[in-house]
Computed example of a mutant assay.
Amino acid sequence: MGGTEHLTVQREGATLVLTLNRPEARNALSLPMLVGLYDGWVEADEDDAIRSIVLTGAGGAFCAGMDLKALAGKGMEGEQYRDRLKADPDLHWKAMLRHHRPRKPVIAAVEGYCVAGGTEILQGTDIRVAGESATFGLFEVKRGLFPIGGSTVRLQRQIPRTHALEMLLTGRPYSAREAAGIGLIGHVVPDGTALDKALAVAEQINACGPLAVEAVKASVYETAEMTETDGLAAELGRGWPIFDTADAKEGSRAFAEKRPPVYRRA
C-alpha cells in the first residue's frame, strides 16, 4: 500500500480506506496529499481484491480546500513530489476526481469541514455520509476565486440547479442537514460515526458481485447525459454480459442453496 505524509492508506477487509491526514490545517490540500490520493485511486483500480473505497479525513475534518497560503506564493509542502506533477500535469485533477473516476464505488465519510476543494472532491464520490456537525460549501467566490475543480459543471447535475447556483454564488456554509435536504449527501449520522457508517455501506457493497457492481456504476455514469433511448441501449451493452459470468451463476446458485455467494470476479 502507498500513502504519503498527508495521505494514509489502510485496508479494512475488501475496502481501501484513504484518509486525508493533515489535521493541523483541517486537511487542506497539499502536494503530498494530492499525490497520495491519486496513487490510492490507481491502487484501488489495479487490485481486484479491493471492492470499495472509503475517503475520509483525520482529526475531525474532511477537507478545507486548497492551501490558500500556498496559493498566495508562500510555498507548498512536499516539493519532492514536483517531478510527479511534471510527468503528469493532470495528476492533481485526477486526485480530486475531476479527471478520473475509479471503477470501484467511492464512499465519502465526512466529519467537520468539507468546504471549497473538499466539496469539489465530494462531487466525485458515489455515496456520501456526514456527521451532523459537518459543514459544506463552495467558498471560492468569497475569495475572488473560481471553483475550478468541476463544480460549475457537476453540481447542477447532482442537485437542483437553483440550489447549485445558490451554493456557487453565495459562498455560504451549509449544515449537514441542509446538504442532505438538497441531495448533496445521502446520510447524516451522529458526529464521530461517519466512518463507521461508510464502512458498513462498503461491507454491503463488498458482499455483492464485483463485476456486477462495477458494471452498474459504469452504466450509471455512462448514460447520465444520454437520451433515454440511447441510455437503455447502452445499458444492455453493459448488462447482458454480466449474465454470462460465473459470478452470476454463483449468485443464483447461492440463493437457491440459502448460503452466502462466493464471488471470484469470473
Rank of each mutant, 00 (worst) to 15 (best):
A130T: 03
D48W: 10
G150Y: 06
K104Q: 12
G117N: 03
R172Y: 10
L195I: 08
P261S: 14
R238I: 10
G73S: 09
V141R: 13
M1F: 13
G231N: 06
E43R: 09
L169W: 15
G171L: 04
R101T: 12
E235R: 15
E225N: 11
M96H: 00
D67P: 00
A164Q: 00
K86S: 15
A266N: 11
V42Y: 04
Y113I: 09
R265A: 12
Y174M: 07
G3P: 09
E111W: 07
G3T: 11
E120A: 08
W93T: 11
Q123H: 11
L145K: 07
H187C: 10
R143L: 14
K197A: 12
A130S: 04
L211Y: 09
I205E: 01
L97E: 03
G36L: 04
I50N: 01
V201W: 05
K142S: 08
A134I: 04
D196H: 14
K197M: 11
D230Q: 14
K86H: 12
R143P: 01
L71H: 11
G57R: 01
A179G: 12
T162F: 15
R238A: 06
H6N: 13
A224E: 15
L168N: 04
T152H: 09
H163V: 08
G131Y: 01
R143T: 01
M96R: 10
D45M: 09
W93V: 04
K86E: 14
G73I: 04
A194E: 05
L122E: 00
D244W: 15
D90E: 15
R98G: 09
A64Y: 07
F139H: 03
T152P: 10
R177M: 14
A224T: 15
V42W: 02
I148G: 12
K74A: 14
W41D: 00
L184V: 11
M167T: 08
F62P: 10
L236Y: 13
L195V: 11
R172M: 03
C114Y: 03
A234C: 08
F243V: 12
T162A: 13
